[in-house]
Design a protein around this nucleic acid. Structure first.
Lengths: 135, 135
DNA sequence: CTATTAACCTATTGACAAAGTAGGTAATTA
DNA sequence: TAATTACCTACTTTGTCAATAGGTTAATAG
């Protein structure tokens, strides 16, 4: 299940994509608009900055801003970076320790197929798609 | 993410589908074959019995058995019953409290679409498909 | 130069669920 | 009647999610 981290991150990115571009938007504005605690949002924004999806600017007139146009972000990358992984089962997650049953596992093909489905879906949807309602 | 409960449940159902039909298989056999703790497996089997996916028989010669042919089970129902839900986000889960932002939520269409994708996928795969390697 | 704004940083908390353990009771068969 | 095996209740441990608290640094306006 996608946690609030990923879901909030997506909402913040959408929120920023909807603001006039080239302007810094303060955290407080975003938090108020989205109804998310400021302190918790901070944590999420920090991740997005580290991963270069956003840039931040301190002081008066500061805030947060997208680093690319909305059509160059995918839902997949936003969710994967904030959630840590998009994998539906532990053995397909990032840095998962190799499973002893891997070679003979009857369920692995099912999980792999679902994993492909999931990645294809989320990586084919851009922020622009969401904002302009294509999806 | 699918937890061990759902994953183990699926493996147990596959295991039973691979045994000669019409025979009760004791928990200990399944646990040994699958490398899962007997006590933990008990909890999972209990759910599967309550939901009528399996039947149990006590005493000597007892054990567990499928209640239908493998082609009449889907991965979807097994996972949904053991996990509680297949939904990727809380607001689409079973008995989720209605979300205040529902009407204006920009992300809801995305989650709904993914939810459909997920359900279609898992409910279209039968136990027989997994056992005979169609998937 | 100073006050204000706003991002950035470290640490802590409470609640909850996942995963598994422990020890017993009841039914069935040989 | 003894062995087998499912069934039942309760507990524990561990970890993550979601959030809170309180400070420090940087940038700008006046």
């Amino acid at each position: 299940m996608i946690s609030t981290k990923g879901r909030y991150a997506l909402r913040v990115m959408i929120d920023l994509a909807e603001q006039p571009e080239g302007q810094f938007v303060p955290l407080e504005e975003i938090a108020n608009r989205q109804g998310i605690s400021k302190k918790y949002l901070e944590i999420i924004l920090k991740i997005l900055i580290e991963k270069k999806l956003l840039k931040g600017q301190r002081g008066k007139g500061g805030g947060y801003m997208l680093t690319r146009p909305p059509e160059e972000y995918t839902a997949g990358e936003i969710l994967e970076l904030t959630e840590g992984t998009l994998a539906a089962v532990a053995c397909l997650g990032k840095g998962a320790e190799p499973c002893a049953r891997k070679a003979s596992c009857r369920t692995l093909p099912l999980w792999k197929k679902y994993d492909d489905l999931t990645r294809n879906f989320f990586y084919s949807v851009t922020l622009a798609d969401i904002v302009n309602g294509t999806i």
